Simulated assay, not measured.
Amino acid sequence: MIRIEHAVKYLDKKVVLDDVNLEFEDGKIYGLRGRNGAGKTMILRAIAGLIHLKHGTITIDGQIIHQDIDFPPELGLLIESNNVLPDFTLRKNLQLLAKIRKVATDEMIDEAILRVGLDPKDRRKVRQYSLGMKQRAAIAQAIFEQPKLILLDEPTNAIDLDGVKSMRAIFEQEKQRGASIILASHNPEDLSVLADEVIDMAEGKVINAQ
Protein backbone atom coordinates (compact mmCIF):
# COMPACT_ATOMS: atom_id res chain seq x y z
CA MET A 1 0.00 0.00 0.00
CA ILE A 2 1.26 3.45 -0.97
CA ARG A 3 -0.26 6.53 0.63
CA ILE A 4 0.49 10.08 -0.45
CA GLU A 5 -0.76 12.70 2.01
CA HIS A 6 -0.79 16.46 1.39
CA ALA A 7 2.24 16.31 -0.91
CA VAL A 8 3.62 19.72 -1.88
CA LYS A 9 6.70 20.31 -4.02
CA TYR A 10 8.19 23.49 -5.49
CA LEU A 11 10.69 23.83 -8.32
CA ASP A 12 12.13 27.29 -8.91
CA LYS A 13 9.36 28.74 -6.73
CA LYS A 14 6.72 27.10 -8.91
CA VAL A 15 4.31 24.60 -7.39
CA VAL A 16 4.70 21.25 -9.17
CA LEU A 17 2.75 19.20 -6.62
CA ASP A 18 -0.14 20.97 -4.95
CA ASP A 19 -1.61 19.17 -1.91
CA VAL A 20 -1.74 15.75 -3.60
CA ASN A 21 -3.53 12.95 -1.74
CA LEU A 22 -3.58 9.47 -3.28
CA GLU A 23 -3.62 5.79 -2.34
CA PHE A 24 -2.34 2.89 -4.43
CA GLU A 25 -3.21 -0.72 -3.63
CA ASP A 26 -1.18 -3.84 -4.32
CA GLY A 27 -1.78 -5.79 -7.52
CA LYS A 28 -3.28 -2.95 -9.56
CA ILE A 29 -2.18 -0.81 -12.48
CA TYR A 30 -2.70 2.92 -12.05
CA GLY A 31 -2.46 5.38 -14.92
CA LEU A 32 -1.44 9.01 -14.53
CA ARG A 33 -2.88 11.25 -17.23
CA GLY A 34 -2.24 14.91 -18.00
CA ARG A 35 -0.30 17.35 -20.13
CA ASN A 36 3.41 18.00 -19.79
CA GLY A 37 4.01 19.75 -16.50
CA ALA A 38 0.85 18.32 -14.93
CA GLY A 39 2.84 16.62 -12.16
CA LYS A 40 2.82 13.01 -13.39
CA THR A 41 6.58 12.49 -13.46
CA MET A 42 6.96 14.40 -10.20
CA ILE A 43 4.60 11.95 -8.50
CA LEU A 44 6.72 9.04 -9.74
CA ARG A 45 9.92 10.75 -8.61
CA ALA A 46 8.47 11.42 -5.17
CA ILE A 47 7.33 7.83 -4.68
CA ALA A 48 10.77 6.60 -5.80
CA GLY A 49 12.45 8.82 -3.24
CA LEU A 50 14.26 10.85 -5.90
CA ILE A 51 12.95 14.19 -4.61
CA HIS A 52 12.14 15.63 -1.20
CA LEU A 53 8.71 17.11 -0.60
CA LYS A 54 8.29 20.60 0.83
CA HIS A 55 5.30 19.37 2.81
CA GLY A 56 3.45 16.08 3.22
CA THR A 57 4.45 12.44 3.39
CA ILE A 58 4.66 9.35 1.22
CA THR A 59 4.22 6.06 3.07
CA ILE A 60 5.16 2.66 1.63
CA ASP A 61 3.75 -0.27 3.61
CA GLY A 62 3.80 1.81 6.78
CA GLN A 63 7.27 3.31 6.24
CA ILE A 64 7.68 6.99 5.42
CA ILE A 65 9.98 7.93 2.54
CA HIS A 66 12.98 10.04 3.71
CA GLN A 67 12.09 9.34 7.33
CA ASP A 68 12.05 5.56 7.80
CA ILE A 69 13.47 4.62 4.40
CA ASP A 70 15.21 6.48 1.56
CA PHE A 71 13.31 4.70 -1.24
CA PRO A 72 10.92 1.76 -1.67
CA PRO A 73 12.77 -1.48 -0.87
CA GLU A 74 11.48 -3.39 -3.90
CA LEU A 75 11.35 -0.93 -6.79
CA GLY A 76 11.49 -1.21 -10.56
CA LEU A 77 11.95 2.17 -12.18
CA LEU A 78 11.74 3.74 -15.64
CA ILE A 79 11.58 7.52 -15.42
CA GLU A 80 12.29 9.79 -18.39
CA SER A 81 15.68 8.89 -19.87
CA ASN A 82 16.64 5.38 -18.83
CA ASN A 83 19.61 4.74 -16.58
CA VAL A 84 21.08 1.79 -18.47
CA LEU A 85 24.84 2.32 -18.73
CA PRO A 86 25.65 2.89 -22.41
CA ASP A 87 29.14 1.36 -22.44
CA PHE A 88 28.10 -2.09 -21.20
CA THR A 89 25.96 -4.83 -22.66
CA LEU A 90 22.43 -5.04 -21.29
CA ARG A 91 23.25 -8.32 -19.56
CA LYS A 92 26.26 -6.73 -17.85
CA ASN A 93 24.10 -3.78 -16.79
CA LEU A 94 21.63 -6.07 -15.06
CA GLN A 95 24.38 -8.17 -13.50
CA LEU A 96 25.89 -5.02 -11.97
CA LEU A 97 22.52 -3.93 -10.60
CA ALA A 98 21.85 -7.43 -9.26
CA LYS A 99 24.87 -7.12 -6.96
CA ILE A 100 23.10 -4.43 -4.93
CA ARG A 101 20.11 -6.44 -3.67
CA LYS A 102 21.47 -9.91 -4.47
CA VAL A 103 18.01 -11.09 -5.54
CA ALA A 104 18.25 -11.74 -9.27
CA THR A 105 20.08 -14.74 -10.66
CA ASP A 106 21.65 -14.91 -14.12
CA GLU A 107 18.63 -16.97 -15.16
CA MET A 108 16.26 -14.20 -14.02
CA ILE A 109 18.36 -11.65 -15.92
CA ASP A 110 18.29 -13.67 -19.13
CA GLU A 111 14.54 -14.27 -18.79
CA ALA A 112 13.85 -10.53 -18.40
CA ILE A 113 15.93 -9.70 -21.46
CA LEU A 114 14.12 -12.32 -23.52
CA ARG A 115 10.72 -11.13 -22.29
CA VAL A 116 11.30 -7.65 -23.69
CA GLY A 117 12.32 -9.09 -27.07
CA LEU A 118 16.10 -8.69 -26.79
CA ASP A 119 18.93 -11.24 -26.83
CA PRO A 120 20.89 -11.87 -23.60
CA LYS A 121 23.82 -13.07 -25.75
CA ASP A 122 23.98 -9.81 -27.72
CA ARG A 123 27.51 -8.44 -27.24
CA ARG A 124 26.66 -4.93 -28.43
CA LYS A 125 26.94 -2.14 -25.93
CA VAL A 126 23.67 -0.40 -25.09
CA ARG A 127 24.81 2.80 -26.84
CA GLN A 128 24.68 0.83 -30.11
CA TYR A 129 21.00 0.04 -29.61
CA SER A 130 18.20 1.78 -31.49
CA LEU A 131 15.85 4.02 -29.48
CA GLY A 132 13.25 1.26 -29.34
CA MET A 133 15.82 -1.27 -28.11
CA LYS A 134 17.00 1.15 -25.43
CA GLN A 135 13.41 1.50 -24.23
CA ARG A 136 13.03 -2.28 -24.10
CA ALA A 137 16.31 -2.45 -22.17
CA ALA A 138 14.96 0.07 -19.65
CA ILE A 139 11.84 -2.04 -19.17
CA ALA A 140 13.99 -5.14 -18.63
CA GLN A 141 15.86 -3.21 -15.95
CA ALA A 142 12.57 -2.28 -14.27
CA ILE A 143 11.22 -5.85 -14.08
CA PHE A 144 14.20 -8.20 -13.81
CA GLU A 145 14.21 -8.40 -9.99
CA GLN A 146 10.44 -9.01 -9.86
CA PRO A 147 9.85 -5.96 -7.62
CA LYS A 148 6.67 -5.28 -5.67
CA LEU A 149 6.43 -1.74 -7.07
CA ILE A 150 7.05 -0.70 -10.69
CA LEU A 151 7.05 2.97 -11.74
CA LEU A 152 6.95 3.66 -15.47
CA ASP A 153 7.17 7.03 -17.23
CA GLU A 154 6.08 6.82 -20.89
CA PRO A 155 7.08 3.14 -21.11
CA THR A 156 6.02 2.57 -24.73
CA ASN A 157 7.88 5.55 -26.21
CA ALA A 158 9.88 4.72 -29.37
CA ILE A 159 8.58 1.13 -29.46
CA ASP A 160 6.89 -0.22 -32.61
CA LEU A 161 3.26 -1.33 -32.56
CA ASP A 162 3.96 -5.04 -32.13
CA GLY A 163 6.44 -4.21 -29.40
CA VAL A 164 3.90 -2.03 -27.62
CA LYS A 165 1.49 -4.97 -27.46
CA SER A 166 4.24 -7.18 -26.07
CA MET A 167 5.21 -4.62 -23.42
CA ARG A 168 1.59 -4.21 -22.35
CA ALA A 169 1.35 -7.99 -21.99
CA ILE A 170 4.43 -7.90 -19.74
CA PHE A 171 2.87 -5.22 -17.53
CA GLU A 172 -0.29 -7.32 -17.22
CA GLN A 173 1.83 -10.33 -16.24
CA GLU A 174 3.62 -8.28 -13.60
CA LYS A 175 0.26 -7.19 -12.23
CA GLN A 176 -0.89 -10.82 -12.07
CA ARG A 177 2.32 -11.61 -10.17
CA GLY A 178 1.10 -9.13 -7.54
CA ALA A 179 3.12 -6.04 -8.40
CA SER A 180 1.70 -2.55 -8.09
CA ILE A 181 2.31 -0.55 -11.26
CA ILE A 182 2.00 3.20 -11.65
CA LEU A 183 2.50 4.48 -15.17
CA ALA A 184 2.40 7.88 -16.77
CA SER A 185 1.61 7.91 -20.47
CA HIS A 186 0.56 10.29 -23.21
CA ASN A 187 -0.74 7.27 -25.12
CA PRO A 188 -4.47 7.05 -24.26
CA GLU A 189 -4.54 3.42 -25.36
CA ASP A 190 -1.90 2.51 -22.77
CA LEU A 191 -4.24 3.82 -20.09
CA SER A 192 -7.47 2.42 -21.50
CA VAL A 193 -5.98 -1.04 -22.03
CA LEU A 194 -3.89 -1.34 -18.87
CA ALA A 195 -5.12 0.88 -16.06
CA ASP A 196 -7.50 -0.32 -13.35
CA GLU A 197 -7.74 3.30 -12.29
CA VAL A 198 -6.87 6.52 -14.15
CA ILE A 199 -5.79 9.61 -12.23
CA ASP A 200 -6.08 12.93 -14.05
CA MET A 201 -3.64 15.67 -13.12
CA ALA A 202 -3.27 19.33 -14.05
CA GLU A 203 -0.91 21.98 -12.70
CA GLY A 204 0.30 19.69 -9.92
CA LYS A 205 -3.17 18.80 -8.69
CA VAL A 206 -5.26 15.64 -8.84
CA ILE A 207 -8.43 16.67 -10.65
CA ASN A 208 -10.07 13.28 -11.04
CA ALA A 209 -9.49 9.64 -10.09
CA GLN A 210 -11.66 6.91 -11.59
Results as ranks from 00 to 15, higher is better:
18 D>K: 07
86 P>E: 02
160 D>H: 14
141 Q>F: 06
54 K>N: 11
91 R>L: 00
48 A>M: 10
109 I>R: 04
205 K>F: 09
7 A>C: 14
23 E>R: 10
201 M>T: 01
73 P>Y: 06
29 I>S: 02
132 G>Y: 12
42 M>R: 09
104 A>R: 03
209 A>G: 13
58 I>E: 00
183 L>T: 05
46 A>Y: 01
109 I>T: 04
23 E>I: 10
180 S>F: 07
147 P>S: 05
184 A>R: 10
170 I>C: 07
8 V>L: 15
11 L>C: 08
11 L>S: 12
85 L>C: 05
41 T>D: 09
11 L>R: 13
197 E>T: 13
173 Q>W: 07
139 I>H: 11
133 M>R: 03
168 R>T: 08
63 Q>A: 13
176 Q>S: 14
72 P>C: 09
149 L>E: 00
210 Q>I: 15
136 R>C: 02
29 I>V: 06
187 N>F: 13
11 L>D: 11
163 G>R: 06
46 A>K: 00
23 E>Y: 05
85 L>N: 05
66 H>L: 12
80 E>K: 10
141 Q>H: 02
66 H>S: 12
94 L>I: 08
141 Q>G: 03
131 L>E: 04
187 N>P: 12
149 L>W: 01
1 M>D: 00
18 D>V: 11
45 R>D: 08
159 I>Q: 05
197 E>K: 12
78 L>K: 03
192 S>F: 15
145 E>W: 03
27 G>L: 06
21 N>Y: 14
70 D>A: 13
41 T>G: 10
85 L>H: 08
197 E>H: 11
32 L>H: 07
20 V>S: 06
124 R>Q: 12
135 Q>P: 12
7 A>D: 10
80 E>L: 13
90 L>I: 06
198 V>Y: 08
112 A>L: 00
19 D>T: 07
23 E>P: 09
14 K>S: 05
